[in-house]
Design a protein around this nucleic acid. Structure first.
Lengths: 254, 254
DNA sequence: GTTCTCCGTTTCGTATTTTCGAACGCCGTC
DNA sequence: GACGGCGTTCGAAAATACGAAACGGAGAAC
């Protein structure tokens, strides 16, 4: 089908396709639903489901298959591998409490940004930026903050492998525009976006100097009406920058 | 009903064995380390690693393979499937803040208990009860609280499939002792343990009535010296029971 | 009560893959 | 300049994942 470098283990890919199928169908699905939406034969999917259930990666309940909690066992391990999560977590929470908005922590992996922690304040927008959510880096302030801490070669490589797909009308889809913006972010020390990923919301984000660990960034997401008030925006930027500072100091002291 | 023994997809199991191998080696490992600790040939493990890396389940960094953040993508989905997580999360946090101890939320799956949320207060013990941690239900107060909300048949089935292995000298390993204890827990409405899973710490936990959702329980973990002071223990029990109440009310109102 | 329908489950033969062990080539160290 | 450790590639043989079709049980329809 696709390019054959060191060709992969097909059965593993099939298993993952089944898992992705469950996810695509909203988190739970019957065998027939999966067979209809996926390529492999029903019996094949069934066999994979049985295998995955044995391993705890899939659970059957009320006649439907859903993602198992075993994923958290490995996920929790990946989440705290760097130690960044544990240091940043209290500061992210403080941002959410102080501002009432949605506060996030992101790490780059394989050219994508992954939210490894999010906390909602009491006026926070309800969004899909949940734990484990994986997005293109160019689509949001926190992702652009991450990109701004990479050198141009690395950014170019990410653009090449992951592309610059649009999400809303405001998403940056042009390579030159993105590089210009990253330069601006590096000068100002803060990234922002206005309805670049989700209509009606925007973010302010800053990168975190993690020493020799993986790059990370934090952000605050807010509805645009609050974000467009200049005083409010300055306040949010201040909060994010202070939090980043605290995290950097604590990381350095570990 | 009966285990039909539709034989499993072996390659998928091998992939998972590789993942478990990485986990067993502390979260990161080289190919040779894995080949030494696992059954399959080096080249086989290598091929699986390449496949898993393509999928984001494994990431290579500094010459070592480690668990990828993609696990959080599915894990986050499993975590919040029931809606229990989001309702309980703020109350668990409140418990941690009020008491300064470690507060936990657990759900049963396939006969095991999985911590789907934990929060540390400012005096909390440092423990391995992290997000996604999977333990035998009989080994800890929160697990016994879960068991106390099941009927005897279901408890018997779990004992049969998962056993009653010991963790410390105080772990309950006898079936009758466990059933007696569960009866006591049902009467008192609260479960506790003293060094039954980890020497030096104990817990108090209560089950949560989740309606028709999956059963859940919350607990507070503390060092035994604080837990053995009667006034303190009563205080912790009170906190846990109140939190459970709030969660139950909020779940019913959804 | 009978038929119909849907869905999970099982069977089975074969072509496809996984698997293994050996060999290769890279890189830093002795 | 050889050595040792490592990730990577190769080819052949064995193992098994796969698909098509059939089974059977539970409701729904009539």
């Amino acid at each position: 089908m696709t390019r054959a470098k060191t060709d992969s283990v097909r059965a593993t890919q099939t298993s993952l396709a089944v898992l992705s199928g469950i996810k695509a169908l909203g988190g739970s699905a019957t065998l027939v639903e999966l067979a209809d939406s996926l390529e492999p034969a029903k019996s094949t999917i069934y066999k994979h489901l049985v295998t995955l259930e044995d391993e705890g990666l899939v659970v059957e309940r009320d006649g439907e298959y859903r993602i198992g909690l075993r994923w958290l066992e490995f996920g929790g391990m990946a989440q705290r591998y760097d130690g960044i999560y544990e240091v940043a977590k209290p500061e992210v929470r403080r941002m959410a409490v102080e501002t009432g908005e949605l506060a996030n922590l992101m790490i780059e992996e394989q050219g994508y940004g992954i939210y490894i922690h999010t906390t909602s304040g009491d006026q926070a927008v309800a969004l899909d930026t949940r734990l484990g959510k994986r997005i293109h880096l160019h689509k949001t302030a926190i992702g652009k903050a991450l990109l701004s801490s990479f050198d141009d070669d690395r950014v170019a490589e990410i653009i090449e492998t992951r592309g610059l797909p649009a999400e809303t009308e405001n998403t940056i889809t042009d390579r030159e525009t993105l590089f210009t913006e990253l330069e601006t972010i590096r000068e100002r020390g803060v990234a922002d976006d206005t309805e670049e990923r989700v209509d009606g919301t925007g973010c302010v984000g800053v990168p975190i100097d993690t020493g020799d660990r993986r790059e990370a960034a934090i952000s605050i997401t807010a509805p645009i009406n609050r974000l467009q008030s200049p005083g409010r925006k300055a306040q949010l930027i201040d909060t994010v920058q202070q939090a980043a500072n605290v995290i950097e100091v604590n990381l350095a002291h570990e």
